[in-house]
């Protein structure tokens, strides 16, 4: 396999391993927030933010941890036939079916980008142009001018009213990482077909 592809696979694996290991420990943040919620309710005042905070942590947990879970092979497959195939046969089939998965992730990413643009106040449905414009403005004219490009910043309709764009940004990041991981898996399968373990 070309060196660049080996490098890509190794790089993606390492990055997602690192991020996934970080996401893995979010389980304790989740337990902590919910424990605090119980404690504060019993002894002080109920909190405004814990349930929603827990939901945000949960999103980070499963979205950022997803690629690492793919590395670990945690994703189930229906292996009625699959289970009986050889490594090479599996690689052939996977190299093909992974394209469907990429398509799904691509659509998911498209939706995430549109929704994040919306949460930054962009309403006309051209999210890529918006982000491009935003980026260019940020670089050429500075943060204040970029802020002006944004419109109504979406907040969660709760009493706590957190901004929504951070969690949507995490989703963009997570889906992108997943897409990279799946691409790495694709190359790995191609490698297996050629008899090389990447």
């Amino acid at each position: 396999m070309p060196k660049i592809i080996r490098g890509f696979v190794r790089g993606v694996d390492a990055m997602n391993y690192f991020i996934g290991r970080f996401a893995m420990y979010l389980i304790f943040a989740l337990i902590g927030v919910l424990m605090w919620s119980s404690v504060s309710k019993t002894f002080f005042e109920p909190t405004l933010w814990t349930l929603e905070m827990a939901q945000f942590i949960m999103v980070a947990f499963y979205v950022l941890g997803g690629p690492y879970a793919v590395q670990m092979g945690s994703n189930v497959r229906m292996d009625l036939f699959y289970g009986t195939w050889s490594v090479r046969q599996k690689a052939w089939m996977d190299a093909f079916t992974v394209l469907f998965l990429m398509f799904y992730l691509g659509v998911l990413l498209y939706g995430a980008i549109g929704s994040t643009a919306y949460s930054l106040g962009h309403f006309t449905g051209e999210p890529f142009a918006f982000f491009w414009d935003l980026g260019v403005t940020l670089v050429t004219e500075g943060p204040a001018a970029a802020k002006d490009k944004m419109g109504f910043i979406e907040r969660s309709p709760t009493a706590w009213r957190p901004y929504i764009w951070p969690v949507k940004t995490i989703m963009i990041l997570g889906v992108t990482l997943m897409l990279l991981q799946v691409t790495a898996e694709f190359f790995r399968d191609i490698g297996r077909i050629r008899g090389v373990e990447l």
Binding site: E45, P46, T47, L48, L51, E52, S156, P157, T158, A159
Partner: peptide
């Protein structure tokens, strides 16, 4: 008034 609004 001390109400904790919950959004679900």
């Amino acid at each position: 008034f001390g109400v904790v609004p919950v959004s679900i």
